[in-house]
Amino acid sequence: MKDKYTVGSLYAGVGGICLGFKNAGFKMEWANEFDKNACITYRENFKHPLIEGDVMQIDATTLPKVDVLAGGFPCQPFSVAGYRKGFEDTRGNHFFKILDFVDAMRPKVIFLENVKNLVGHDNGNTFKVIRNEIRKRGYTFDEQVLNTKDFGNIPHNRERIFMIAFDEEFLREEGFKFEFPEKEALTKTIKDVLVHEEVDEKFYYREDKYMFPMLESEMKRDDTVYQFRRQYVRENKSNVCPTLTANMGSGGHNVPLIKTNFGFRKLTPRECFRFQGFPESFKLPGIANSHLYKQSGNSVSVPVIERLATKIFEVLNQVGSRKDKNQAQHTA
């Protein structure tokens, strides 16, 4: 049994997965991220090595081996029929690059995150290949869609699929099934997440903005979040923040809106990071807000990752304790 299990993080973004694992007691060994602005935010918050650049250019054999290989990877279609014939796209495909790391490092755990729709992507072929390729390598494979509002105690409607695989050789347990966390009651409200003071004027929509009459007509409540969609304003009826997206960074038009005592405004980048469960201590660097919006929309919800990582830590410790006990009996 080890005091700290190590993690290597691919497609790390600003470190949502890394922070969740770190909070659960893991040691971050290294991470990789391609986006230069995400790397700026990452380095503000983590001290371990970050390899900035294209994952396709990394030789997995040059990095320290880790207990957990994690990544929220870009999803691409594969043709199962074509893949069986050799499928030439495998070399440029992100999932197959992850498999290179798996083959080189043989981690005890593979932790993957993606959009909920991955299961139906390319008529189910993508998910079939992912599951089959991981199982073929002697790993278990369990997946579940978790919503941040149900598993992270944050009022944010964000459904993501999590795939968790354990090395069967390490487990030595027939019929193992990973137990995902239980749903928990949502006790935090939108108001718990928002800044209640006046914020910078640039976040407000004043009377000089063409959409102001529409906002004034539709935005009546101060306890929910709205979305402006060019021709109409949509209220979130379930009193949670709608799914934050990466394209919030493109001009700010997709950033959710709120009604405050100081006027109608969009969420600030700090509020978006809060809706992803990042703590106040998480530093946001002095880069353009468009980048920060994109980074929060691209990220994972930290408390959901922490709950999953805690469960993984428990399994690793249980297996480690069992092996220690067996070893002690053999040497006695």
Rank of each mutant, 00 (worst) to 15 (best):
D89G: 10
Q57E: 15
L215M: 12
N317F: 02
V14N: 00
F87T: 02
R230I: 12
V193G: 02
G320W: 12
N114G: 11
E207D: 12
N132A: 13
L171R: 13
S281N: 10
N247V: 08
N147S: 15
E197M: 00
G20V: 13
P256D: 14
H330L: 14
F170C: 07
R84G: 01
F264Q: 06
V315I: 11
D208G: 02
Q231L: 11
N247L: 11
E235W: 03
S296W: 00
M56E: 14
V225Q: 04
Y226R: 00
N153C: 12
G138E: 11
P107N: 12
T245W: 02
Q276T: 01
P49M: 11
R230Q: 14
K325V: 03
E201S: 11
K47E: 13
E88Y: 09
F166Q: 08
L69C: 05
A332W: 10
C75T: 13
C75I: 13
P269W: 04
R160D: 06
G86P: 01
L194V: 00
M214T: 06
N157Y: 11
N247P: 00
E173M: 15
K220E: 06
D100I: 01
T62I: 14
M211S: 11
L186K: 05
E44W: 04
I98P: 06
K220F: 10
G15Q: 04
I305T: 03
P64M: 13
E314N: 08
K116E: 15
F273L: 03
S290Q: 11
F34T: 01
G138S: 09
M28T: 05
V225K: 03
G20E: 09
M219F: 11
Q276P: 08
F78D: 02
E44V: 00
E314V: 06
T260C: 03
C39D: 02
C18R: 10
K2W: 12
F73D: 09
L19Q: 10
E207M: 07
L146S: 12
I154Y: 05
L292R: 01
N261C: 00
F228N: 09
A185Y: 07
M248I: 04
I130K: 04
R206L: 12
F46H: 07
I287T: 02
D100Y: 05
K202F: 08
F275S: 08
Y210S: 13
G252E: 08
D59I: 07
T61H: 12
E216C: 02
Q57C: 12
E29A: 15
E280W: 03
G15L: 01
G8K: 12
R270F: 00
K85R: 15
E159V: 00
F166E: 05
P181L: 01
V225R: 02
K2Q: 15
K294C: 03
F34A: 01
S238I: 01
S217L: 11
S79A: 09
L267I: 05
V319S: 06
D103V: 07
V240W: 04
E52I: 03
